[in-house]
Simulated assay, not measured.
Amino acid sequence: METEAVKALIQQGMPGADITVTGDGRHFEAVIVSPEFEGKSLIQRHKMVMATVHDEITSDTLHALSIKAYTPEQAK
């Protein structure tokens, strides 16, 4: 799986988010900045992101995704 494909999946599930994805084809790191994270716990934020790639994780197309999820204020 390519980084752009992972980014597209997250973007589709979280329109308007600022997303950066790096990785090696199996292990990826995503940095997501979204106003949707306002008032959400870290676990809630991670669940929101993981929901966007659930099928790929389940099928093992995407083996690992490290998530850094920030509100726009936190990203400043």
Rank of each mutant, 00 (worst) to 15 (best):
P15L: 10
V31I: 14
D55C: 07
M14T: 08
P72Q: 12
H46G: 06
T58G: 03
Q74D: 09
M50V: 09
T71S: 06
K47Q: 15
V53K: 02
S34I: 02
T71D: 02
G25E: 05
D24G: 06
T61A: 15
G23L: 02
T3Y: 06
K40G: 04
T61C: 15
I43Y: 11
A30D: 03
L42C: 12
G25S: 10
L42G: 09
M14S: 07
A8Q: 02
I10Y: 00
A5I: 14
T61E: 14
K47D: 04
H27K: 12
Q44P: 04
V33A: 06
P72S: 14
A5D: 07
T22D: 07
M1D: 06
S66F: 08
E38V: 11
H46K: 11
L62K: 02
T22G: 08
G25R: 07
Q44G: 09
A5C: 15
L65Y: 02
V49N: 03
H27A: 09
M14I: 13
R45V: 06
A30M: 05
L42E: 08
V21K: 01
H54I: 08
K7D: 01
D18C: 14
L65G: 01
K40P: 04
H27F: 08
I10G: 02
K40V: 07
Q74S: 12
T71L: 05
G25P: 03
R26K: 13
R26L: 14
L65W: 00
E4T: 11
H27V: 09
M1S: 14
Q74P: 07
R45Q: 11
D55P: 05
F28A: 03
A5T: 14
S34D: 02
A64E: 01
K40R: 15
T22L: 09
T20A: 13
V33N: 04
I43W: 12
V6L: 04
D24Q: 06
E38Q: 15
G23Y: 02
D55A: 13
T22F: 06
E36W: 11
V31A: 11
K68N: 13
P72V: 11
M50W: 05
K7S: 01
T58M: 10
A69R: 02
P35V: 12
I10N: 01
P35S: 15
E56T: 13
M1Q: 10
G25L: 08
Y70C: 10
E56I: 10
A8P: 00
A75C: 13
S59H: 05
E73W: 13
M1C: 12
A69V: 03
S34T: 05
K76C: 08
F37Y: 03
I19Y: 02
A64I: 00
T22P: 02
T22W: 07
Q12V: 04
D60F: 05
A75L: 13
G13L: 04
E38L: 10
V49D: 00
D24V: 06
I67T: 06
P72M: 14
R26N: 14
M48K: 08
I43A: 15
V31Y: 05
A8W: 01
S41K: 11
E4W: 11
H27C: 07
V21Y: 00
H63S: 05
H46A: 09
L65V: 03
Y70T: 11
H46L: 09
A75F: 10
A17E: 00
Q11V: 06
H63G: 02
L62D: 01
K76P: 01
L65R: 01
K68E: 08
K68Q: 12
Q74M: 13
